[in-house]
Design a protein around this nucleic acid. Structure first.
Length: 429
RNA sequence: GCCGGGGUGGCAGAGUGGAUAAUGCGCAGGCCUUGAGAGCCUGUGGACCUACGGGUCCGCGCGGGUUCGAGUCCCUCCCCCGGCGCCA
């Protein structure tokens, strides 16, 4: 959510920033918002005058009653004013609701370094790491490997849960757990507080964290309950301190959340349909930060470094891209992706997403900070999030990059102590 | 799930349908002081309007209702504490 005061005082600044996102609907919403806000404030002033009038009448009633005087005339006057108030209140509430709805729909302001572009093809490469492997044999995709190693079963998952689900078996289960343990240990060592959050959340906190369209496209809802399955532990971690004021000395608050996550993937029809690259459910370790506004850009770089370090230790060739205006999400002011090299696709594909949401989530969730005990809150915190590890896609990258001519797959050294010393996954058929 | 108790400014804690949410702590500014502290004075939830002097309204877990008028009475829901039941 943007600052309504900024919109009032500096509408050109906001509109020129929104223009960068290339969606004219945003500017229309901004105009409607400014219009509704004006009407809301005008009608609110009038409403306050009426309420003032009522107060004078009811105080007069109280005084007259104490003196034993007749108050019939005053009461009917009060009723009259009451009716006017009720009518105007309805209008004021409508204007206010409109303002709120527009505010909830407008995306975050973009950082100046965000490149302009239409879609992910216009993202700008920031750096690369690792050597793209050369294979002296025909490269297999992760699905083929999954079958011959007998560690992934998509078909039966389809039977019992539908498309985009999977059974992991044998070493794949170990790999999944190992990736989680490995990433958790990396984060713990860096001083992050480990978190295992609720995997379901109510609507209200959820509205503070995601864009409204996500309720349709991303989030699974539990029937007959006000509960949604989380799409990332970013969400329950962000909402954790809703309506609270954090102490300056405990900032930056660095969290690492571990959870299974659930995504509808609506609107991804036909994309990545084979395998476990894009699924409705996977496991993930997520970095999450609450910090003071002046620290967020420095910490954004820190988060991407942390994620890169994990990719490096796993020996996965990757590149970092700066998401362009057409690809960045609603809540982010700037977003880096890490894209790992996927040999079978002969392409870099996203495995990590790292965003600075500035004060956008914090304002929606009402999370402030104060410099000193007893002082008034200084302002909204900034929030940032970044994948540490997402197991599904990382397993794809490992299988494909570490495959051998004999059909086996070598386990990355960094995972050795988490997989019981298994060094290689052998074909079973 | 059931029964009982509770939820009031940053914190503690009053408030039995009617005037200004008392009082204390903390915090900020001022006076005093060589300095600090103590003491004293003023301020310290949010929104809107403003001729920037102020003015008005809202605010007691959320949302409704009764009433001329609700922190106070009634209803739904949420959360916390205690007890019972169920449960991996």
């Amino acid at each position: 959510m943007l600052d309504i005061k900024l919109i009032r005082e500096n509408p050109e600044l906001v509109s020129s920033n929104l223009m960068k996102r290339g969606d004219p609907a945003n500017l229309e919403m901004l105009d409607s918002l400014i219009d509704c806000d004006k009407k809301w404030r005008q009608s609110l002033t009038k409403l306050n005058e009426l309420r003032h009038e009522r107060r004078q009448v009811t105080t007069a009633i109280a005084g007259a009653k104490r003196n034993g005087k007749d108050v019939v005339a005053e009461i009917s006057k009060a009723k009259e004013v009451d009716n006017e108030i009720t009518a105007l209140e309805k209008k004021v509430n409508e204007w206010e609701e409109n303002v709120h709805n527009y505010l909830m729909r407008l995306p975050n302001l973009l950082h100046e370094s965000v490149p302009t572009g239409k879609d992910e093809n216009d993202n700008v490469q920031v750096r690369t790491w690792g050597k793209i492997p050369k294979f002296g044999f025909p490269v297999k995709g992760h699905m083929d490997l999954g079958l011959t190693l007998d560690i992934i079963d998509i078909e039966r998952a389809g039977k019992i849960a539908g498309a985009r689900f999977f059974y992991l078996k044998r070493e794949a289960v170990l790999l999944d757990m190992a990736l989680m343990s490995f990433a958790l240990e990396e984060m713990r060592r860096k001083g992050y507080t480990l978190i295992e959050p609720p995997c379901l959340m109510r609507r209200k906190p959820y509205e503070g964290v995601v864009s409204l369209s996500d309720f349709e496209d991303v989030l699974y809802k539990v029937e007959n309950e006000d509960l949604y399955l989380i799409a990332t532990s970013e969400h329950p971690m962000a909402a954790m301190f809703m309506d609270e004021v954090l102490k300056s000395e405990e900032l930056p608050l660095k969290l690492a959340g571990m959870s299974t996550v659930f995504r509808k993937e609506a609107g991804a029809h036909g994309k990545d349909t084979r395998g476990i690259f894009r699924t409705h459910q996977f496991n993930k370790i997520e970095q999450f930060i609450f910090c003071k506004p002046e620290d967020s850009w420095r910490i954004h770089e820190e988060l991407i470094q942390n994620a890169e370090e994990i990719a490096k230790k796993l020996g996965l060739p990757y590149r970092v891209v700066n998401s362009c205006t057409g690809d960045i999400g609603t809540v982010a002011a700037k977003k880096y992706d890490i894209e790992a090299w996927m040999p079978a696709q002969n392409a870099y594909r996203e495995i990590v997403s790292c965003s600075n949401c500035t004060d956008y989530q914090a304002r929606r969730l009402n999370i402030k900070y104060r410099e000193k005990e007893g002082e008034a809150p200084k302002g909204f915190v900034h929030t940032l999030n970044s994948t540490a590890i997402a197991t599904g896609r990382t397993i794809v990258a490992i299988l494909e990059n570490y495959q051998q001519e004999d059909g086996s797959v070598v386990v990355p050294k960094a995972l050795g102590k988490y997989v019981g010393g298994i060094e290689k996954i052998e074909p079973k058929r």
